[in-house]
Design a binder for these strands. Structure first.
Length: 1033
RNA sequence: GCCGGUGUGGCGGAACGGUAGACGCAGCGGAUUCAAAAUCCGCCGCCCACAAGGCGUGGGGGUUCGAGUCCCCCCACCGGCACCA
């Protein structure tokens, strides 16, 4: 190891200690954000403050899959340790840092199918490997709580949970569609469907219905949505994604009556979020799995043929949205509720899914692009119900244009409205339409959620068996708890497709738990998301005989800091939030834990560039990084193609092997590099040169520390300077670590290392500095920090020493550097004593050569300068301050006409503004008041009249982007309050441009933006003119 | 297609709305060395260069005294889209 060679030059502790280290700390400390400020501000150590023993679990998600199955594992490890220490560092708290393995799932089955082994063996082998790789990383994990989700002790408790949830009514059965491979006769996961075909058989995948188990997560839709508000330490983007996913909407539930009763159906139920477009309905679409379609299918061959065709393809939303839209006219018709004469055809459509809503929709081609495409394809009528409030020259859908889908807040003109005003926004129209429909007995307004219930059944072996026995007499009966766990049989094979549990000779046989008669076990297993939805709770009492021990859960929950990839933003995190609530409802978690994760951080991944060659058939062959050198294969010398890094995957051989990293560089270097190179929420590209640089730097730090340890003299005059830099570094690094800004914090450490190496300060001061440096590095490089700490006489472990505190007296500056900006560009800078009066500074600035050059002899307006000065000088003295040159230039910049001391001070605060109640009028008034100040004692009144129009200015070459011009005009009149003759009156005009794309909905916002700009332009004109008015007195 | 995000030198990336490119890598120059490794010092956005200057944060517009940062439109890429986890 290179580490050894370099360090051998000076007497040092043994290399083994450096890489493995005695470092393990069970008791972590914590400081919280609120105390940060106090510590920095008053130089008071905060550790005393945290006396209360506070329970917390760190390290939660990314119970990594066995290595090879989940490429995120290594990164998660490298990250977590440092992160926890980084966010702790304080003192006095118990920290639980457990480790577990999310071990069920398809990768194990796939490996078994590929290699003929058994998933269990494969999984436990990988766990052993990964554990071995992880232990040297210095992560201070509590291994006594380790478990894998495929341990019967774990999944047995999960089965108990399932039974409790069933009894609480949170589990039920219903039909749902799955991807069906008709050749392999097996259910496929979405990822096994490639371009609509099965991954093994290549056969066209079909959608097929099966009876499956569901968790009633939708019962918590409202709760899961509204509780997002309380998650202050979650990223806003994750909360937004969850909110959109839950998707609360208000709409109308109604039925179209069939003109003739068919197969017992006299109506078709639909739900719509746009009941205001009801008169634009031109057809009714039902799912191929709709009961009516099913009934028709049974007796009509043409229907059956179409339904078979329509069921082709995957079940994902993406496949449905982007796939070809197919329809079949059943010949049936329904009556329009508000137009008895009109009969709408009933079509079976492949994009209507039975799982969503009622499995039926009404099509409104005028205002939905998908419906429009469908209508044009099958020559169905297109009826528009509303048109833009302002004619933009764009044809309506019924005249051959695109579907018109404005934002719901935009006012439009209803040409086929039936409730509310002619001109109104979609929002108000929807409310009016719902009210109207309810009044006339057509349906009712309901609030719905997009969130669907969670189908947990999987027709696979390697998962938690669903603890249900199907009895001919008693139906589906939960297994008795004393019979748990329902164990997976070991004697299974994967040589044929399908679920091994299904074809196991004896496993299915079980007595009915209720009546004792011979019955059959459920052969579906649980979604592995179930496993990962409650393991954090299990960590609080991993060996308990019940899912959790309430006292332990009460003690440890909640998870303070949860770390996971952004790819878990919706499903995993939402399911966990649901499970926490379900576990509370079933008595397995305290109420405080229904939001289990107090703070969430989304991290990136470690990536590596991919090395690829091509074989004789031109198919890519991938190579491991260690077999490549200088852009060519080490053994054959063949050139490799380098593909920029992508998500690590075993198949592309760009996986970074933690073993290799550790062997070559050691844990400290690996962690230092991963943290220093990019912000933690982003992916890290693993590069050998980057790791090398990290390694060199750590060696340098050691060298410096060693020199410092030996040093006996130095210049005490330089102490002050070094201490300044040190305390500045303490402040910056501490703040950086607090806010997950690791890479920036590490940059500061680099800088300080350089300062220290050049410092001529006294030996004692340098020792303190080096020791503190080590301490600041300790979250990233625990081993090295511990070595240096000990060598430089630190007491105990660096990990248990109080975190350093930046002392205010070393942070204050005597002088300050002021960049000088003229017209927004930096032209020069001066450094002045902090206490220098502004007049002197001004003189200095004006005397500056670069400044006078930039000013080019332009006359300076003293009033402007004054304003600039006063506004700047009142700001926080410790902050960098600016001289604003722009205001000083005659002819450019703006004149602060109505500011205090300005020419028009006579009007300031004395003008009442009266504007019409138009949007533009409102904006103008607000702008004018901004400039004139609120009229506390009005002496004048400014009356405005406004008008505006939109003009189409240009069309882009492709005709896709339209450019508009918003023309505005304002008439103003200023008169004294008690006097008739006007002091000033006139008209100002201007315009503001904006562009919008055809068929998109963004035009409203663009126009609003333009109107604001217009108001500003008009305001400037008006104020300029008012300025010219001679003083009335 | 829908939802969310990202876009800054050759590269990874810094920048409370205030000196764009901190820090690192690569590159270039120098010191040390018989030489090399290691180490140390310096330079390092682009254009024009003697300098002065000009241009620059995916593209187009806007707000602002001042925009990488805020607003609008567009483009590209990444994540998610309910059976990968």
């Amino acid at each position: 190891m290179q580490y050894h060679r370099q360090r051998a030059e000076t007497p040092q502790p043994s290399p083994a200690r450096l890489s493995e280290g005695p470092y393990h700390v069970a008791l972590h400390r914590r400081r919280d954000r609120s105390q940060m400020a106090g510590r920095l501000g008053r130089g008071r150590p905060l550790h005393r403050a945290a006396q209360r023993r506070q329970a917390q679990i760190l390290r939660a998600r990314d119970v990594p899959l066995p290595l090879g199955a989940d490429p995120h594992g290594p990164r998660a490890q490298l990250h977590d340790g440092r992160r926890h220490r980084a966010s702790q560092g304080g003192d006095g708290h118990n920290v639980l840092h457990p480790m577990g393995w999310d071990a069920f799932g398809m990768p194990a089955e796939n490996a078994a199918m590929a290699s003929g082994g058994h998933p269990k063996e494969w999984t436990y082998n990988n766990i052993a490997d990964m554990r071995a790789q992880m232990k040297p990383l210095g992560l201070s994990i509590d291994w006594s709580r380790e478990f894998a989700t495929c341990d019967p002790e774990y999944y047995g408790q999960q089965q108990a949970l399932f039974i409790d949830m069933l009894e609480k009514g949170l589990v039920y059965r219903k039909n749902a569609v799955v991807n069906w491979d008709p050749v392999d006769m097996t259910v496929l996961a979405n990822e096994q469907v490639i371009d609509g075909k099965g991954w093994r058989s290549g056969a066209d995948v079909e959608r097929r219905e099966l009876t499956q188990w569901f968790f009633k997560i939708s019962e918590y839709s409202d709760e899961l949505l509204s509780a997002l508000d309380g998650l202050d330490d979650w990223p806003a983007k994750v909360k937004l994604m969850q909110a959109n996913w839950i998707g609360r909407s208000r709409g109308l539930e109604m039925a179209f009556g069939l003109t003739e009763t068919t197969h017992g159906h006299d109506r078709i139920e639909v739900y719509t979020t746009r009941p205001d477009t009801l008169l634009g309905a031109s057809f009714v679409g039902i799912s191929p799995d709709h009961p009516l379609a099913r009934a028709l299918e049974a007796e009509r061959e043409d229907v059956a043929a179409f339904c078979a065709e329509a069921r082709r393809g995957g079940t994902t939303e993406e496949a449905l949205e982007t796939g070809e839209k197919l329809g079949f006219d059943t010949g049936l018709t329904v009556r329009h509720p508000f137009d008895e004469g009109r009969a709408l055809p009933v079509w079976i459509a492949n994009f209507v899914l039975m799982d969503y809503g009622t499995g039926a929709i009404f099509g409104c081609p005028g205002h939905d692009q998908r419906d429009l495409d469908f209508a044009r394809k099958y020559d169905l009528p297109v009826i528009s119900t509303f048109a833009p409030a302002k004619d933009d020259g764009q044809a309506l859908a019924e005249d051959g244009g695109p579907a018109y889908v404005p934002p719901k807040s935009e006012p439009v003109i209803y040409i086929r409205g039936f409730a509310g005003e002619t001109e109104q926004s979609g929002e108000t129209a929807i409310d009016a339409a719902i009210a109207f429909c309810e009044e006339h007995g057509v349906g009712r307004g309901v609030t719905r959620f997009r969130l669907r219930d969670w189908g947990l059944s999987r027709q696979r072996y390697w998962g938690t068996p669903i603890p249900i026995v199907h009895c001919a007499d008693c139906g589906a009966v939960p297994e008795k708890k004393e019979n748990l766990p329902v164990r997976l049989p070991d004697d299974v094979s994967f040589d044929v497709p399908g679920n091994p549990l299904d074809r196991h000779p004896t496993w299915r046989d079980a007595p009915c738990p209720r009546c004792g008669k011979a019955a059959r076990r459920e052969t579906d297993t649980m979604d592995t998301f179930v496993d990962s939805s409650w393991y954090f709770a299990r960590f609080t009492s991993p060996r308990a005989e019940t899912p959790t021990d309430m006292a332990e859960a009460e003690y440890w929950m909640n998870v303070d800091q949860y770390i996971g990839g952004i790819e878990h933003a919706i499903l995993h995190l939402l399911y966990s939030r649901f499970f926490a609530r379900a576990m509370h409802a079933t008595g397995h978690l305290p109420e405080k834990a229904i939001e289990p994760f107090n703070a969430l951080f989304t991290q990136g991944m470690v990536t590596h560039e991919i090395y690829q060659t091509r074989n004789a058939n031109g198919r890519p062959v991938y190579h491991l990084p260690e077999s490549v050198e200088n852009g060519a294969l080490k053994d054959s010398g063949e050139k490799v193609e380098i593909i920029p890094s992508a998500k690590m995957s075993k198949s592309k051989k760009n996986v970074v092997d933690p073993d290799a990293i550790l062997a070559q560089y050691g844990a400290d270097t690996a962690r230092w590099f991963v943290l220093s190179d990019s912000p933690p929420e982003r992916d890290v590209e693993w590069t050998a040169s980057g790791a090398e640089a990290a390694h060199k730097h750590l060696a340098r730090v050691w060298r410096i520390a060693d020199e410092v340890a030996e040093a006996t003299d130095g210049d005490t005059d330089a102490d002050e300077d070094l201490l300044r830099q040190l305390h500045r570094t303490i402040r910056d690094v501490t703040l950086g670590l607090e806010s997950f800004g690791f890479n920036a914090a590490i940059a500061k450490l680099y800088a300080f290392t350089s300062v220290l190496s050049k410092s001529s300060a006294s030996a004692g001061t340098r020792r303190v500095a080096a020791r503190t440096l080590a301490q600041l590095m300790s979250p990233m490089t625990p081993h090295l920090a511990e070595e240096i700490w000990t060598r430089l006489g630190g007491e105990g472990f660096v990990a248990s020493a109080p975190w350093p505190v930046a002392e205010e007296r070393f942070l204050v500056e005597d002088s300050v550097t002021l960049p000088i900006q003229i017209n927004g560009k930096r032209r020069s800078e001066i450094t002045v004593p902090k206490a220098m009066p502004k007049d002197e500074i001004e003189a200095l600035v004006l005397g500056d050569e670069a400044v006078s050059k930039a000013l080019g002899g332009a006359p300076r307006k003293s009033s402007s300068w004054c304003r600039a000065g006063s506004s700047m000088w009142s700001s926080d003295p410790s902050r960098r301050r600016w001289l604003l040159g722009a205001l000083a230039l005659g002819g450019c910049g703006f004149t602060p006409a109505f500011g205090p001391g300005g020419d028009a001070a006579r009007l300031h605060g004395k003008v009442r503004v009266e504007a019409p109640a138009t949007f533009l009028g409102y904006l103008l008034r607000a702008r004018l008041l901004d400039r004139l100040g609120p009229a506390e004692a009005p002496r004048y009144v400014l009356t405005l009249e406004t008008s505006e129009e939109v003009e189409q200015a240009a069309v882009s070459a492709e005709g896709a982007v339209l450019r508009y011009r918003l023309l505005g005009r304002a008439e103003y009149e200023l008169r004294p309050l008690d006097d008739d003759p006007a002091l000033a009156r006139g008209t100002v005009e201007d315009f503001a441009g904006y562009s919008a794309t055809l068929g998109t909905v963004a035009s409203e916002a663009a126009e609003r933006d333009a109107r604001e700009r217009l108001a500003r332009l008009l305001t400037v004109q008006i104020t300029t003119r008012l300025l010219a008015v001679p003083a009335p007195e």
